[in-house]
Amino acid sequence: MADPKDIHIDIMRSELGRARGMGAAKSGVGHWWGQRVSAMALAPLTLWFIYSVLSLGSASHEAVLAWASNPLTLVLLLTLAGMTFYHMQLGLQTVIEDYVHDEGKRLLALLLVKGAAVLLAVTAIVSILKIGL
């Protein structure tokens, strides 16, 4: 048995790297938290959206406009749109990183998904504002 004084551990990570806490992938736990927090927001928002759509049923165009012009509806719809596409691109990022091994293809796929998510989110938000305001 070696003298305990002789036992030492070499840590290759620098003190700065440890303090930053970003890990080998250089993004830390940001993705993990983002996915969970948006999931927590989406659970009640989705239930509200299902309830709303069921209440609207096969509503007339005027009924939809009246529904969306309520300030509370407007706020919840905008939050739902933002959270949905934020959560969506985080989830699709995980899927792409798991299955697309070629670095170039992976980067391309990630850029396409993130770009599409931004475009869809902005489209949804502009539409909601146009309906509700």
């Binding site: 165009h61 939809v64 899927v95 869809l120 489209t123 949804a124 539409s127 146009k130 309906i131």
Partner: peptide, 20 residues
């Protein structure tokens, strides 16, 4: 289902755009 919902979100955007 997550990937399917991502595709399904297109329908939600279509609905909003059409109403707008």
């Amino acid at each position: 289902t997550g990937v399917a919902l991502a595709a399904g979100s297109l329908l939600m955007v279509c609905w909003l755009v059409s109403a707008a």
